[in-house]
Design a binder for these strands. Structure first.
Length: 321
DNA sequence: CGCCCGACAGGCTTACATTT
DNA sequence: AAATGTAAGCCTGTCGGGCG
């Protein structure tokens, strides 16, 4: 077919030259052939384009799905972070309530649930920078660049898609077999026949099954000894690609050895000797902590060793400055 | 006239049963 | 397990017809 289409331009040229001579019966035929050939070429390219567009459309939709998956994951993670931040603020609030020195003005007055930053700073001279720094750990900064995180590798080079793997039907109707189209085996009327023959009520199913070969001695049903090969549907390149794309797992769980929760990490900081000597730059620590954060599927976790190392680093930088 | 679409035919690949 | 045979059905060019 390709050969024909490739050869057609040359053929056309030759034909056009002959057409310029006085019209005869033969020339009419040539004329007709030219039209047919042009029509064929037109149709061929139109159909090719159409199918290409169709394919592209499907790919675009698939890419869209993938992108949405990514965004969903990000939103989920952000939500978890906000929950943790809320928890942290609750704890902090409790700590402040517990440690606040009762003043005549506040003894009976109920503590507001949310203290403003300035009021909190005024409550405790130590909690100032620490509170501020910690509060920004899970602040909006950590989620500020969703695009960079969700960028899906849509720019991957498009490789030619191999022929789609398929499961063979065993009892398809005769019409489908004849038309060489996939039969959905629906009874009494398959989908293809329903579409094509509006007044048909039942398909012609071959009850003998798909094989016309002489049956072997009736024994127990054969179990295929064929091992799963690379040609099996489940392992076809396209299928693999699809399953890879749509794992359905919204957030990738990260395994963190000896993982600390956010509260534990905070505790670790508070118990650290450097911190007790007030040598830790809490803001730097918080920024570092953000980078260490890993999502284990349910909550954020931080590797203990790294957290400790981070405290050391933060204190070194702090003391150096 | 060009484009699009559905249907079709037939080549070709693949899945699967059977044999060696 | 490998080789072989065969049915299923994917893929693509072609055709007829509708539409702007």
């Amino acid at each position: 077919m390709d050969a024909a289409s490739q050869a057609s331009p040359i053929g056309l040229k030759a034909i056009e030259e002959t057409v310029s001579s006085p019209s005869t019966k033969g020339n009419e035929e040539v004329d007709k052939r030219i039209l047919t050939s042009k029509r064929q070429a037109q149709n061929r390219s139109a159909q090719r384009n159409l199918r290409q567009r169709k394919l592209q459309h499907v790919r675009d939709l698939e890419d869209g799905i993938e992108l949405l998956h990514g965004k969903q994951t990000l939103l989920h993670t952000n939500n978890e972070l906000l929950k943790l931040q809320l928890e942290d603020l609750k704890i902090e609030n409790q700590v402040l309530r517990a440690t606040i020195r009762p003043t005549p003005m506040l003894v009976d007055a109920p503590m507001p649930v949310c203290l403003s930053r300035s009021s909190r700073l005024s409550l405790s001279d130590r909690s100032g920078p620490r509170t501020k720094g910690f509060a920004t750990i899970m602040g909006t900064n950590c989620c500020s660049s969703p695009e960079s995180d969700t960028t899906v590798s849509t720019q991957e080079a498009r490789i030619p898609i191999p022929r789609r793997a398929h499961k063979k039907s065993k009892t398809g109707c005769r019409t489908c077999k004849q038309r060489k189209v996939k039969c959905d085996e629906r009874r009494p009327l398959c989908l293809n026949c329903e579409r094509h023959f509006t007044n048909l009520e039942t398909c012609d199913f071959d009850e003998l099954g798909h094989t016309l070969r002489a049956p072997v001695a009736p024994t127990a049903p054969r179990v295929s000894r064929r091992p799963p090969s690379s040609r099996d549907p489940g392992s076809s390149p396209r299928k693999t690609l699809m399953t890879k794309k749509s794992t359905g797992q919204p957030a990738r769980a990260t395994k963190v050895p000896d993982g600390l929760t956010i509260n534990a990490a905070w505790q670790a900081l508070q118990n650290h000797p450097q911190y007790l000597l007030d040598r830790v730059d809490v803001t730097r620590f918080c920024e570092g902590l953000r980078r260490l954060a890993a999502f284990n599927g349910t909550a954020l976790v931080f590797e203990r060793a790294r957290v400790l190392m981070l405290i050391e680093e933060s204190s070194q930088i702090s003391s150096a400055e």
